[in-house]
Every structure is written in C-alpha cells, then in structure tokens.
C-alpha cells in the first residue's frame, strides 16, 4: 500500500555522486553495451558543470521538443523527410532541417567499435534518430573537438562508400550524389548538422559481437552541440536505423535501462533478452507511416498516490504520445499536466515552495529535511497496465535545495 501511494527518499540519494558506481554486468547471451549519462562521472566525455547547468539542459530540451513537433507537423503536411532533397548539395552545403534527429539528441552515451580493426567511438544513442554517423577523416569541411580519435576510413580494411545507385542510398532519402557516392545529411533543431559520405563498415557493439557492413554516415562537415561525442547512434524505426539494419540478427528487439542518476551506469542491449521476463509490463507500440522514425505509445491516464486523475482519455488521444530517449522531461497535454500538477501540489503542501527552473514550474526546497515523501505517480496504458515511476522519474533534482515535478505541459491540447 505504502509503495503505491508514496516514496520516502533521501534528497541526497537523488543527486549524482562524485564517483561512478553500480557497473552493469555483461550477460553471456545478450549483446549489452554500457550506457552512461554524458554529464556524469561515469562518462568519458564529462565536462565540469557550470552554475546554470540544469537550466541549460532544460532549455535545450525545449529546443529538442520544438524540433520533434516540427518534424511531425511537416510529415503530416506531406513533407518532412519523405521526399528527395530538392536541391543538389555538396558536403559543405547547409541542409534543410527536414531529416535527422534533434538537438540534445542524446543525454546518454555508449561506446562502440567501428571498422577493422575496430576503433572506439563514443556516440549518443537516440531512439528519435535513424541515421548513425561519426566524424570522419579527413574532415574536408569541419569537425568539432571529440574525445575519441577521429575515425579514419583509410585505416579500416572493411570500409566502403555507398553508391548512389544502391538501395541503401534510396532508403536514406539521400541529400546528394557526389562522383557516384551517396551523400547523407542530418540537421538539427539548433542548426547543428552532419554531412558526408554514406558508407559501410563493421560495427562492433561488443568485443564479441559485430555487425558487418553496417551503413552509417562518415561525416565531413560536422558542427553543433555534440559535446565530445563522435556522433550519434540511430535507434529509430526508419530504414537506415541500426534496429532495422539488424532486423535479422536481433529480430528487431532492443532495450535499455537509463540509470537512476548520472553517477550510475545503465545498458543498451540488442536481441531477445527480456521479452520472457514476467515483470515486464507491455503496451502496444504504435507506428505512423508518415513518421517511421518514432515509436508511439497509447498513454491513457495518470495516477497520483494510487488515485487515477480525472482526465478524459480524449485529452491524450487527441495528440498522441511518443516515447523518446532524447527528450529529458515528459510533455503532457495542458489539461493532463494541470491535473497532475494540482494533485502533486496537494500531496507536497508540507514542503516549502521554491522558484521555477526553466520549464519546470512546480519546485520545492527540502533543505534540512533529509528525507522527502513523494506521492507515487503511475502512467496508465490500455489493458490495465500501470507503470509506477521511480522517484527519480517523478522529480528532477536540481540541487540539494530544489526538487521539481519532472513534467511539463505542451502549448496546446492538440500539440
């Protein structure tokens, strides 16, 4: 009963520690990669946090969401990556924001091996992207600073360019053709982009499991907010994605676990590892042919402290819900968010209110309390499926003196 109505947690346990902990063990029968938060002590690409760090993350998240909306709206209108590029372009050319993922595509990174012999490449993993790309030698136009050595096609025994006449290039909705080589281009909501040669090479997901002839972008013109990562690992549902390319090998099954905090590690796994796990609660995945990249789910309700909120199902149905590893904060229709916020505030009235942080408008100052009692929040799906969020999924802990309800509202009900 208690676990369904609330969580008692120490505020300090919601904050990342200064050292990395909780490593994930490899399972012998599963292709499993270690997954870490880009800004935590487990990350090889960690940078020192600035004072307004959390607000920056949330502001970036808003840009990311805006771009997702833009892509979906464009697809609904008949554009958005379904038609060939209208302009011929060389790798140095700016590309329209119609393909690729979005800014802040990954808060979580994994390290893979690319080429023969494999060279380590640290990539953001993103279920909202299809094309995988890395920065490539000789960086004919531009490369940003990255952690790993730049991938050098000349040093790989298995590297090959993809020709314009190939099916792979057709699947890509290529940007251009240059001397018979397929040119890919992905652009991002903030103007970040990667353009280069569409290529194939061996991709080692683990030291013992490689994908031969994996199709990826070998970036020659790369710029933007990618931190120190070498590129992006695309796990969307479209044809160029890793998931689709490995459909026969892993049966279109993959999974991940995002750790509780930035000082813990999670995993990204491929193959049928957990589908028979009796603790897994399943809900239907919905797909839209106009936006094949995205995975949609049918969220129909929310409960707080074990009580279902009075939100008409039509509120959720009107806009739909997609699940995305690259969006930080869950966005709800305004009516749903208002109901959640009201119920949450009612259960948190004993705590001192704190100022809003960016898009998070319901914050509290738990200073001096040590332990806080959070109302349980569950997401409801058809078939009586209830997913009870972890405490780390209910509040966003900015620092020891500010925890905020980790949800935000969309601008409109049909957004």
């Amino acid at each position: 009963g208690e676990s369904r109505s609330h969580h008692k947690v120490n505020v300090s346990s919601l904050l990342p520690r200064k050292v990395c902990s909780n490593s994930i063990d490899a399972l012998s029968n599963v292709t499993r990669l270690r997954l870490v938060h880009r800004h935590g002590p487990c990350s090889p690409a960690v940078r020192r946090r600035r004072s307004n760090f959390e607000a920056e993350i949330l502001a970036r998240d808003q840009l990311h969401v805006g771009f997702l909306r833009q892509r979906i709206a464009a697809a609904e209108l008949g554009g958005g990556g379904t038609s060939p590029a209208s302009t011929r372009a060389a790798p140095s050319t700016k590309i329209p924001a119609r393909s690729g993922a979005s800014v802040s595509a990954g808060d979580y990174i994994v390290t893979v091996g690319l080429g023969t012999p494999p060279k380590a490449q640290t990539l953001f993993f993103d279920t909202g992207s299809d094309v995988t790309w890395v920065q490539c030698q000789p960086c004919t136009v531009s490369c940003y600073r990255q952690l790993d050595q730049l991938f050098d096609p000349a040093s790989s025994a298995t590297y090959a360019n993809v020709t314009c006449a190939s099916a792979a290039c057709s699947d890509l909705d290529a940007l251009d053709c240059s001397d018979g080589t397929c040119i890919y281009g992905v652009s991002y909501g903030d103007g970040s982009q990667s353009v280069g040669f569409y290529s194939s090479d061996a991709l080692a997901l683990t030291p013992s499991d490689a994908v031969p002839r994996f199709l990826f972008g070998c970036g020659q013109a790369n710029e933007g907010l990618f931190g120190l990562a070498a590129g992006i690992l695309g796990l969307g549902g479209g044809r160029p994605s890793l998931v689709t390319q490995t459909m026969k090998k892993y049966n279109g099954v993959f999974g991940y676990c995002l750790p509780a905090s930035a000082s813990d590690t999670g995993y990204l796994a491929f193959g049928d590892s957990g589908s028979t796990n009796p603790t897994v609660k399943y809900t239907n995945m919905l797909r839209d042919a106009k936006t094949p990249t995205f995975y949609f789910i049918n969220l129909i309700g929310i409960s707080v402290a074990g009580q279902r909120l009075r939100i008409p199902p039509s509120v959720f149905a009107k806009a739909g819900t997609l699940i995305d590893s690259g969006t930080v904060i869950t966005r709800l229709p305004p009516a749903a968010y208002a109901s959640l916020r009201s119920a949450f505030r009612g259960r948190m009235s004993r705590y001192k209110k704190a100022p809003a942080v960016s898009i998070l408008d319901t914050c509290y100052d738990p200073t001096g309390r040590g332990e806080v009692k959070l109302p349980a929040v569950a997401l409801l799906f058809p078939g009586d499926v209830s997913v009870n969020l972890a405490p780390e999924g209910i509040v966003y802990t900015v620092n020891e003196s500010r925890i905020c309800l980790a949800f935000a509202a969309n601008d409109g009900d049909d957004d």
Binding site: L68, T127, G252, G255, L258, T279, T283, M285, S325, R331
Partner: peptide, 30 residues
Amino acid sequence: VGILGNVQQRTFGVLYDVPKKKIGFAAGGC
C-alpha cells in the same frame, strides 16, 4: 504530441519489440 521523456524512464528496463509492436517496462532494470 505528448512525449514520454527519459527522466520518467529512469531505472526501468525499456524493451522495444518492433515486429510485434510492443514496448515493455520492467521496474528495477538497473
């Protein structure tokens, strides 16, 4: 569109079965 973001997915094993069109959530995944 509503979006289920990564904060809410923390600690769950999130399983995608694309051919069967199922998404699974397992509490305490990591």
